[in-house]
Amino acid sequence: MKRSLFQHRLLPWVLLAPQLAITLVFFLWPAAQAIRQSFLREDAFGLSTTFVGLHNYSELWRSAEYLNSLKVTAVFAISTTVLAMGVALVLAACVDRLVRSQRAYTTLLVWPYAVAPAVAGILWWFIFNPTVGVLPHVLDRLGYDWNHLLNSRDAMILVVLAGAWSRISYCFLFFLAGLQSIPQSLTEAAAIDGAGPFKRFWSITLPLLSPTTFFLMVVNIVYAMFESFGVIHATTSGGPAQSTNILVYKVWYDGFIGQNLGSSAAQSVILMLIVTALTVVQFRYIERRVAY
């Protein structure tokens, strides 16, 4: 081997140090803290801590609020993913057919990805605001009384729209790349083989996109579950009546607003387990069908 390159024993460690330090300080240490914290109970003034074992966890399973949050998270994650991917696929299929204007459309469609989630959240907040928003005004004309501050279903629709919006750009890019990697002659062969446009899309294009689709599905679900804090915080703050209080928001709320550190820590440990499980599924599955 090329040992001579690394005669200094310390050099590799020095080179690795920045990355290791970041992982250690910002991931491993907080994670360890969270696990430790999840077995403890602190009094309201932070003066005493008691070891309570799995009490924080068992409390969660008895808490209707937490179970509701699980359900809300599932609804939110699945709706956001389906909406973002569905719209992105349609847009990508449209753009893929263009010849000269392709670049312009691609650029425009990718823009929303550059908007910070909190900014996007505020945008949606303004558009949907029951008092001053444009959309409730229009919906009111159509006879629909939009109020996401009172109506849980309206609130869920709002956060799903806001959450999906910026993800559409991301999915669009992947779908477009996936579509462009399918040789044109395949579609042509299918056309000669008597398959109409929809049949071709269904029986040739979609199956060939399936690795991309699966990848996006996992990434989007993980994203919706863990990184949509900004969207929720800027629009509904989890309300009304817990109807948009997804897990990651509840972790923050219980910990930093409610000051129930033990429970919050237990919740974040469960979140960590879920993300780990999803990642494992992703790699197992994708490795098996990365190419045909």
Binding site: A189, L208, S210
Partner: peptide, 10 residues
Amino acid sequence: VFQNYALYPH
């Protein structure tokens, strides 16, 4: 018959 055969890989 296409140059790259255009077989359906799936």
